[in-house]
Structure formats: structure tokens, C-alpha cells
Design a protein around this nucleic acid. Structure first.
Lengths: 344, 344
DNA sequence: CCGGGATAGCGAAACGTTTCGCATCCAACT
DNA sequence: AGTTGGATGCGAAACGTTTCGCTATCCCGG
């Protein structure tokens, strides 16, 4: 049986409170010789403080809870979550916090899930890519627990950290239009995610305001995953009347498009330009290198983490932030092919 | 203030224990009408059970602790950890457990770190790629907490889940030798990681037993990271007398090699064959596609997770496992170039 | 010589649960 | 009628801490 503070007290024949003070440099002072012997005995007995008991009283766990998006299988393999997780873990490290990942967020009934999130194990919550219809935020909001979202949330008064989707899409379309593209398709993500919705909206308004050509059939859902990007691209690119560029709601979709182009013998960027969104690590390594919109995801995660921890520490809640994106031009974009334009 | 079990008891004018039984379907029975009213009042008061208090008594937290490798910056971006994390989270989900990631594992003094790991927040521990000189295992072993390692550990009686490094290296070298390569270099990982050591040993013995050519200068450390792989490859490939193939201790190093070859104008696979280890997702997407040894990392993680949870649940500790790897041939390997062989 | 503020230390309450021991009651056996 | 035993419910201990209230001692200045 593990040694407790009581065992130390008994061994030294002093009171439990004194031991506590000695170990913590506690709120009251303890003579040096006592402090020394307490530490000595603690070491001898192999004493390890029990954080559950401590947290029960102090109401602080120094643990940050993460609620991952429920929209993927193999969640942890999603580059977006990986980027977010990296930012969170790094900042948590700096803030002397640990990180608890909640599982089964998609399986549990909402109320049961809320029980998990609010059961005292974490000081605060970070939602990563939460679906906009999730009743979870409403539930959590009623409790005193600080929380933030990474990615856009469909609510006003949420501490949310996201990229500026409209600006990002603007960069992408401006780039393509600048190269001379007028026929541009869009593969969108998951309609439940606000970021996805905002990107599609922005895309539509860019198309309109710039007078580009994009029939409704060229705007398709690709679920933020590779193989759906492939499938949809196969359809769009398989027809006679095809676009000269495709703007994808994230990089993974873009990888699917690249592959589809390959299967169809369509060369990128000569016959088709492809733009992604996120700039995941891989974007640089694929061939051709993917032109994409770099989302400062790790930074967003860092800011979100810092913000919630500050609230936990007693600061007054600040505002969320919307950070701008950057265009990263690689080799998947080029001016459109003459014949393709002519043939249309 | 959040409602507690006492509040419910007071509201219904019944005892705390009855409420507990009612809520848990506890070890004793409670009449249906009481059960019903307890649940009703619980809902009205917005009662959420406090898991800290419960865990303090039951000594179960249903949480798995993860101790990530301390050998990387930006830990979570390491594909190996990502793969492991994915396997762990998926299995944890199946086992109804959550996952706690410990931070600052490299910054804390060992004893302080042990305090973190053993403070009662987790039921069991999983070490991912733990350095073989880590005193942590010794410390943890003295406590009753179940633990396992993913990756080889330098100890006998550890519940360890790793790939069969010798077999994997054998596959790689057999493949290269089969293609006709006799001049093979090796970029190794981190000498603190047992997997890295085993791979290098296996490589050396393959070289010897097959009578291949590999001067000591061709075996270099590349720290399991991209840019070191690049640097070392630049040196090895920059000299007159260069190998026709490079076997890398992981895929990331191989990516660095591919890039170095590109900078030097050496074409892969015509003038240089490259083999990696791991088969990370990206290996398929880079150009040329990377020939590599597929390590069943997600499966190892799953097995490790299942194993520790079983011990927590009272099963007697089984053995760790060593799983075989599979050769995945893509386009980064080919028979060696005639002239290069001749010139040597 | 005395008052007063540190200093030292103890005991007990509190945090929110689970669960054991005990008491009561009523129905059903023998 | 007496015994058994399940159902019902209460009170209290326990988990391992932190921290408050209290008392006692000591040293120092007035």
C-alpha cells in the first residue's frame, strides 16, 4: 500500500497538518529541522502525493480537457487535430498543465458525455472542430468551467479561436484568378463544421463578385477526407466540361484530387491547378508540392490554451481571436491551359 | 455551486447512501419510486457526479496515462507518436477509458515526474518510445501501477510491445540485395532508443553475413528527423565514393535523403535507392513513393492498451509482443545503376 | 516584570463520494 | 407461533489531502 501523509505523521509522531505544511512549504511555516526530517521520511517511505485528494479540496487539477471533433474515424490521424493537439500540448507544457483527451465523444448520449466533461478531472475544456449543431456547448455553458473552441463555432459568446476563412478563401481565389483561371470548382468539407460552411460561402461570393464560372455541380462535399476528395474529383474531372482549377476546403481533399488527376492522366499544374487549405506538413512533400492556404493552427491552439488557463487562474475572460491566413505557392498551380479555355 | 449527492438527499429527505445506491444502481437495491425521484431531483438540480471523489474511494479513474518520448521537440508532430496515440485512443475508446497525456516529461526532475505519473490520476501508464537509459521505469516498477511500453525497452520484465526490428531490417536489406545492391549505407536514429540500436545492429550483421560493402563512415546518426537525414545524406552522397542505396532507420530520415538527392541532382531510384522504416501515411504521397518497412504501430498500441487495461481489471499480466513487419515496395528502389557499380 | 506578536503544533472540519454495519419491517416458510 | 431472510433505509467510516481555529511557548521591548 502506498504511503500517505498520515504514515509520515505517525512515523515522526507529529500531526498531519504539520507534515502537509512541511511538504508544501505550506501556508504556514515549519522549522527547518522538521521540514528536513519530513522530507527524509517521505523519501524513505516512497511517499507520493495523491492528486485526487488534493484536487478534491483545492478544486484545481492542472489538467486541460480536450474534446476532439466527432466527425472523423481515427481521430488522431486527422492533421487538423494533430496540429491543434501539438499547439495545446506545447502550451500546456509551458503552463505546467497536463492534457486529458476525452474519448467516445460521438458515442455517448449528450448528457452522459457532459457528465464526463464536468466530473472534476479537468480545469477547463477545449473543443476542437466542434460541430455547429452540438448541444454540448449549451450544456457546458451552464457550468462555471472555462472553455474555448479551436475552429469557428456557431455561437456569439464563445471564446473561439479560428482562422479568417473569408480572407483565406479570398487569397486562394485571387491567386487562381490572377493566373487567369475563370473556371473553378470547389470541394467543400463537412457541412456540420462552421469552417466548412464559411469557406463555401466565401467561395460562392468570390465566384460571383469576380464573375467566374462555377456551375452548382462543381461544388461538392468531400468530407475533409482524402478518398471523398478523390471520388468527387473523379466525377468532376471525368466530364467533358471540366474546370481548370479546383479549390479544396482542406489539404487532404486536395491530395485526393491530385491522385484523381493522376488516375485520369490529367497533369497538374499544366491541365489543372489545385489549391488546398491548412498547409499540413505533407503539403510540402507531395508531388507536385501543394499550393495552399496556411492556417496558423498551432498558434490558434496555443492562444486558445493560454486563454482558458488564464481564466482558470482568475483572469477575466478576454475575447477569442480570428487570425489571418497566408498563401503558400508551390507547384500545383499555374496559368490555365490554352486549349482547355478555348474548348469551353 | 454545483449540486452534490448531499443536496439531493436533503431535498428528498432521505439518506446520502440511498441516493448513491439509486444513482448507481448501486450494490444495494432501491425501490423504483425512490430511484425515479432521485433521478428527477438530480436532473432538476443539474447534478454531475464528481469523479475525483469517486476515484479517491474506488481507486479507479478509467484513465490511461501516456508518457511521450522525450527525444523530440513538438512531440505531437512525430508520426510515430501520432500512430501510437491513434491506436491508444481508439482502443481506450473501446475500453471506455480516457487518455491523459503527461507534459514536461523532459523538463522535470525524475522524482518530480514520477510524482506526476503516480499521483492517482491514471490507472495505468503507457510509455511511448522511452529512452533506454530512463530511470523512470525503475521508479514506476516499485509501485503497483500497471504499465507497458510501445517500442523496445532495454529491460527484460517489461510488458513491451514492439516490432521485430531484426526481421524488418532483414526484409529491407534482402530487398536491396535482391535488386543487386552491394554498396549500402545506413542512417540510424537516436542511440538512446532501443529500436534504433537494434536496427543498426541488425543492419551491421546483415552487411557482414551478406558480404556487402559499407565503410564505417556510411553509418551515421540522423536522430529520426528530417533535417538530420538531409545533412548526413548530403555528406555521404557528396563524396566520390558513394553508396547505391541507403537504408534509413525511419521514414522521416528517408524524406531528408530524398530531398538531399534532389539537391545534388541524384535521381531516385535510378542512381540511388532509398528504403525507410515505419510506413507513415505520407510515405505513399511523396515522390517517388517511398519503399519502406511497415511497422504495425497502431496495432502495437492497441495491444499495449488492451494489455494494461486488462491488468487493471484484475487479469494476470501476460507477455508483451513483438510483431513482424512487412515490406512495402514503392518507387524509391530499383536495381543499381551500372556505371556506379563499375566506377567503384 | 509584563504584554504582545511571532513561532510551533495539534485537532478537526471539509472536499464528494462509496460502502459497510446495523436496525427495522413484513412476508413466507417450517 | 417462531424463525428465516429479503427488502428498505440510516448513520458513519473511509479515501488522502488542505486549511482553519485554537493553544502553548518563546523572545523582545517597554
Amino acid at each position: 500500500m502506498a504511503a500517505t501523509i498520515k504514515d509520515i505523521a505517525r512515523a515522526l509522531n507529529i500531526s498531519v497538518s504539520t507534515v502537509s505544511y512541511a511538504l508544501n512549504g505550506g501556508p504556514r511555516s515549519v522549522p527547518d529541522h522538521v521540514k528536513e526530517s519530513v522530507h527524509r521520511v517521505a523519501k524513505e517511505l516512497g511517499y507520493r502525493p495523491n492528486r485526487l485528494a488534493r484536487s478534491l479540496i483545492t478544486r484545481r487539477t492542472h489538467t486541460i480537457g480536450i474534446v476532439p471533433s466527432t466527425t472523423h474515424r481515427d481521430i488522431v490521424l486527422s492533421p487538423f487535430l494533430q496540429g491543434a493537439l501539438n499547439g495545446i500540448v506545447n502550451e500546456a507544457e509551458a503552463q505546467h498543465h497536463d492534457v486529458l483527451i476525452f474519448t467516445r465523444c460521438d458515442q455517448l448520449e449528450v448528457s452522459t458525455l457532459a457528465d464526463q466533461l464536468l466530473d472534476g478531472r479537468v480545469d477547463c475544456l477545449i473543443f476542437v472542430a466542434i460541430p455547429s449543431n452540438s448541444p454540448l456547448l449549451d450544456l457546458v455553458r451552464e457550468y462555471r468551467i472555462p472553455y474555448a473552441t479551436i475552429s469557428s463555432a456557431n455561437f456569439d459568446d464563445v471564446l473561439q479561436f479560428s482562422c479568417d476563412n473569408a480572407q483565406g478563401v479570398g487569397l486562394a481565389i485571387e491567386h487562381l484568378a490572377g493566373l487567369g483561371h475563370t473556371r473553378i470548382a470547389h470541394l467543400s468539407g463537412i457541412p456540420l463544421l462552421q469552417d466548412s460552411i464559411l469557406r463555401e460561402q466565401a467561395f460562392r461570393s468570390e465566384v460571383t463578385s469576380r464573375g467566374l464560372y462555377c456551375p452548382e455541380d462543381w461544388i461538392r462535399e468531400a468530407g475533409f477526407v482524402w478518398h471523398k476528395g478523390y471520388d468527387q474529383a473523379m466525377q468532376i474531372l471525368g466530364s467533358e466540361d471540366r474546370p481548370t482549377a479546383i479549390f479544396c476546403a482542406n489539404d487532404e481533399i486536395a491530395f485526393g484530387v491530385l491522385r484523381a488527376a493522376k488516375s485520369l492522366g490529367i497533369s497538374v499544374p499544366e491541365e489543372l491547378s489545385v489549391v488546398g487549405f491548412d498547409d499540413v506538413t505533407v503539403a510540402e512533400l507531395v508531388t507536385p508540392g501543394l499550393t495552399t492556404i496556411r492556417q496558423p493552427i498551432s498558434e490558434l491552439a496555443t492562444l486558445a490554451t493560454r486563454a482558458v488557463v488564464e481564466i482558470v487562474n482568475g483572469s477575466i475572460a478576454g475575447n477569442g481571436q480570428t487570425l489571418p491566413n497566408r498563401l503558400v505557392v508551390r507547384s500545383s498551380t499555374a496559368p490555365p491551359c490554352r486549349e482547355l479555355i478555348a474548348s469551353s
